[in-house]
């Protein structure tokens, strides 16, 4: 299973990525899914259970937008709790990424932020 770490990493940050995408633009599930599958190579199917979970957790809400063709489309937007979660998780991610980057340096860097989380 050579790709396990790769998949685990992506799965772990998928929620954060969705929050970040929605912070830029309110969007519908297909757009979010194709955006993320292009950007980080994430499977499209996972988006729907994830969106429902984030809705249950109160991070996003939905509203319907009339469409010129066919039924109206369901859009997602961040709630205040969603924005707060984005800030917290983004800080956590940056700290983690900086620590891993520092470890990947061939020579130890002075004052590397190893414990920033």
């Amino acid at each position: 299973m050579p790709e396990t770490i790769d998949i685990q990493l992506k799965k772990g940050v998928l929620g954060l990525c969705v929050l970040a995408v929605l912070a830029r633009n309110e969007s519908y599930a297909y757009e979010i899914a194709s955006h993320l599958s292009d950007a980080i190579g994430m499977g499209e199917g996972t988006i729907y259970p994830l969106m429902r979970r984030m809705q249950t957790d109160g991070l996003v809400t939905t509203y319907l937008v009339e469409s010129s063709s066919g039924p109206s489309r369901k859009y997602y937007k961040l709630t205040d709790a969603g924005r707060a979660a984005l800030d917290a998780q983004a800080a956590e991610w940056r700290g983690f990424a900086a620590a891993v980057d520092a470890l990947l340096e061939p020579v130890p860097v002075a004052n590397a932020p190893l414990e920033e989380a």
Binding site: S37, E44, G45, Y48, P49, R52, R53
Partner: peptide, 18 residues
């Protein structure tokens, strides 16, 4: 691209239960 429908169904069901 969507993946295994049975697996997705289990995940969606668990989420609905919660």
């Amino acid at each position: 691209a969507l993946g295994d429908p049975e697996r997705l169904a289990r995940e969606l069901k668990a989420e609905a239960g919660v």
